[in-house]
Every structure is written in C-alpha cells, then in structure tokens.
Nucleic acid binder design. Structure first.
Lengths: 187, 187
DNA sequence: AAATCTATTTGACAATTGTCAAAATCACTC
DNA sequence: GAGTGATTTTGACAATTGTCAAATAGATTT
C-alpha cells in the first residue's frame, strides 16, 4: 500500500515506517460513487487508493467543484479538516469501484508520538503536496484553458475515461462547455 | 523573532523550539532591493522578516512574476530549493529596508535530527503554508480580478503603499493595466 | 530646476472564456 | 429495445481581461 511518492526514499528507514502504518491501516472496498467523507463533519482518515479513482469536492454557490483527484498509489482526504481538526468543507468520494487503505488520524498521531523519527516522512509528504499546489497555481496563472487540458491529458491520459467531464472541468477551473469545445477542436 | 503563525501554540513546548532555533539564527539588515537569494543557485536559508517586506519572484517568458510576499512576522524562502535541495527558479529580495533573521537549512536539519520532537512544529508550519496555497487557488478559480484585488486590500491594506503595483499585479495574476483600471474605478 | 529614468495610467482593440438555452448522445432500467 | 435520466455537445451572445502603444505622473540625480 506504499504511496507512489515514497518509492524513491531509502528503503531501510522506510520499512519501519511502513510496518508501523500497516499495523494501523485497514483495507476496504467501495462501489462507485460511495462517499468516504461528508462535508460538515470532521475527517479522521487518510485514504490511500490501491485501486480506483477518488476525488474531493465541495459546493461553491451550489455548484459541485472538484478540488483534488487521486488514482492508484495516491492519497486523498479532507485536508482542511485533517490539518485543522475541525469540520470540513470537502466531500470525498470514489468515482469508480475502488479498494482503499484507511489510516485513522488519531492512531497516526499516536505512532508519531511514539516514534517522532517518522515525522520527517510526514514532512516529506507535506512538502510534496505543497509543490503540487504550487504547480497548480502556476498552471492557473499562465496557461489557457486549452493548455491546462492538454497538460492534464499528458500527465494522466487515462483519467478522462474514468471520470466525468464536468469534474475535470471544475478541477481545471474551466466551464464544462468550454472544455467540451476544446475537446471538439482536437483531431 | 517568533513567526506569527506559531503564536497560538502551547508556550511551554514552543519555548524550547524557539531557544534551539534562536541559537542557530542570525540577524541581518538589508537595504531596499537587496537580493537575498538568486535563482539558479541552491537556497540554504529560511528568512524571517522582523521588519520590512520581501518577495519571491521568477521570470516567466522574460516577465518578472511575484510568487510570494512576506511582511513582519512572516517567513520567506526559495521553497522549491529548500524542499528539493536543488537549484531554485526563484529569487528572493527585500522590497523595503528590512531586518531579517536567517536560519541556515543544514543547521536546522541538525537541530531536527537531535530533537525530532521539533518536527511536529515544522509539520505545523508546512500545514499552514499549504492551506495558504489552497486559499490562493480558490481565489484564482472563483474570484474576478477586481475581487482578488479587494480581498488583498482587505487582508493587507498597507501592502499597496509598500510594494510596486506591477508586483501586486503579477502576484494576483492580473495584468498591470487591468489592476490600474480596477483601482481607478474605486472612489 | 531640468533631465532622466521608472512607475502608473489611459486608449483602442482583440481574444478567451463564461452563461444560458437547447439539442444530441450515452447509459441504464424495465 | 423502448424509455428515462444523466452527460456531453452545440449555438448565440456578452463580459472580462489581455495586449500593444502612447501619454502622464512620480522619483531621483546632477
């Protein structure tokens, strides 16, 4: 159940971390469209996708907006709630039938209290997702709707077959109609 | 030299962290427009503003783009380089005459190796700057140029007197001309 | 105070994208 | 396989914002 981003790290040190987290993780299967976390409640889990696709979304002026998408080997959660320990504005749902590892936050904290040397991996994890957001900002600032779409296709070609166009559109910050036209203009 | 965001944390635990970081921090004064870090080199410092204003910027298609702005009680660095330990694409400069605390990354790592219990504060720090980026993305996705400007004025009213309009514009993802017109349309 | 350099504003126009409404396509159920 | 509901596409139009060029204002130097 190792996260993709950890695969480059020194195996020896990592093994203990993984063992400790394996010990508190549980595996679940969910059918398509299952809500893993509901907005307005506190989120106490990190979800790691073994198989399938999941997204976080929220409602902005009544519209469903996708904030994050995760596929195999990636993690997803209601990050605001997990960080600030309060009610979340995000929902998390699986978009396909999925197999998910759950790590409960309180147990994770306990592991980190007992073995603070693991904290540096959490730090590494946060650094990675921070850089992901920085990339996304640059994407929004400097690339046109069309370019953003092309970059997503380049990065995750399979995603477009696996998730609704409307979700892709809101994730990219484009109206669904514009995204549809962009697709039509290709080939 | 405490960071604004740490002020809400339990004082007792925090005191040791601060003492340990004070021990490796050095204070410097820089005149306006001094470059604290140059792109293409590895950044080995975190800068904490005691007085003044600083920004990170980079060149995108030859244009100066402001990525981050920090004022008193906030921190700034070439975050890509600090995280990934490689050459940075960012420059860091002070925009006003400033007093800055420097913390060298290698020494910070050493402190964290010796006292891994401090890692959780680093984690807290990363979580905070992560949420800042998430806010910025939402800002870009859902608010017009005018609204983004108004929100910045609301949040940091003094900034507009302290830093060039062109820097504010690129930070907000707006052309300088549009920002100028937005300002003209008010009052 | 004139001269020079920098920063900001203004004008004219074009391009990108959003919105609303309707049609077409697709997917699933009975 | 007809029918129903969800998803995607298309059309027409308006609004926001960017670009390029020039003018103005402000700041700094001699």
């Amino acid at each position: 159940m190792i996260l993709e981003i950890f695969k480059s790290l020194p195996a020896a040190e990592l093994a203990e971390l993984l063992a400790d987290f394996q010990a508190i993780a549980t595996r679940h299967s969910y059918p398509k469209n299952t809500l893993l976390h509901q907005e307005g409640t506190r989120c106490d889990h990190v979800f790691i996708l073994e198989k399938g696709v999941a997204r976080t979304f929220y409602y902005k002026d009544g519209k469903d907006v996708t904030a994050h998408i995760a596929t195999e080997g990636e993690s997803i959660t209601a990050i605001d709630s997990l960080i600030q320990r309060k009610k979340s504005r995000y929902n998390v749902e699986v978009v396909e039938d999925s197999v998910v590892m759950l790590i409960a936050y309180p147990e994770m904290q306990q592991v980190l209290e007992q073995k603070p040397q693991h904290e540096k991996y959490i730090r590494f994890f946060l650094e990675q997702i921070y850089m992901d957001l920085a990339d996304r900002i640059e994407n929004l600032l400097f690339y046109t709707a069309k370019e953003r779409y092309e970059r997503l296709v380049e990065d995750k070609p399979d995603l477009l077959q696996r998730i609704n166009l409307s979700h892709i559109a809101s994730y990219l910050g484009i109206s669904q109609e514009t995204l549809s036209r962009i697709r039509a203009s290709k080939e």
